[in-house]
Amino acid sequence: MPAGGPAAAPAGAATAPAPVATPKVQAPKLAVTVTEVIDVTPMIKRFRFEPSDGAALPPFSGGAHVIVEMREGDVLRRNPYSLMSPPSQTSSYTISVRRDDQGRGGSRFLHRDVRPGHRLLISPPVNLFPIDWRARKHLLVAGGIGITPFLAQMDQHARADSAFELHLSVRERAQGAYLDELEARFGGRVHIYCDDRGERIPLDALLADQPLGTHLYVCGPAGMMEWILATARAAGWPDQSLHSERFLAPASGAPYEVTLAVAGKTIRVTEHQSMLDAIEAAGIDAPYMCRGGACGECETAVVACEGTILHNDHFLSADDKASGRKIMPCVSRFEGRSLVLQR
């Protein structure tokens, strides 16, 4: 059955002549206007979004992200970016974007083409990386641009007067975003480590001397996050105390075809497209939240599979992946003869 629940049309609707009017399974998108673009570092730009209709934006909580829709000719890209502005502020949102010249083009488009006055659609905020307020203390560890969700969280921590400290690792001082602002506002609660000076987060010592009830939050490059979480688990930190956010960019790969059983369509996924992108391009409104393999919202049942599903997400359990009955189309791909999904 269509994953939209009661709001979704019956399966037969897919054969109706006007496929454009597909039922909405997403919350209404927010129309925003870019009102400020700031060069933070040579590689990082900050964008301010204000509602195009002048109304207030929805409130959010520290750690939330929005999906930014970027239309460039025929190509529609949707990338998740963490909100960094104070969560109490609903007149505008800000995000910071690091240009990734090896990526699929979303950050390059934002850097090159988006200027004040540009209109965009964004999703309402979704928080997959919230503060656990049961914690007695919050230990925040970030690498590079992974600082952005913590900027919003630290504003909340400061207002709540909660115990927290930030450990931020950057390549070099001049390339690090918001270092001066963080030190000025939070003083001794901020610890910055610069790779080019040979400084490294003293992780073992840090993890060994935290009071009971401390929770660890990690956001940064994949290798750094794996190192920190594995070290914490080996030091006896229970899973409930560990929080991390990692958005995967959808992997590229060989093109393939997928049959969508509910819609009655067979679609082609190109080399640089995700399966979810291709499903949407075919006019099918599939559910999603993070588009980065983290949240599970786009999970789809596999009806038949002759070949290999390339599971790239970190949502499905190892058993689910091995069963071959589920797939996360936002990041996963397929190799083989035929794949049929319940979509």
Binding site: R136, P211, L212, G213, T214, G236, W237, P238, D239, Q240, S241
Partner: peptide, 8 residues
């Protein structure tokens, strides 16, 4: 009471 999580 001491702040521990059930996983520990």
């Amino acid at each position: 009471d001491a702040g521990m999580d059930l996983g520990a």
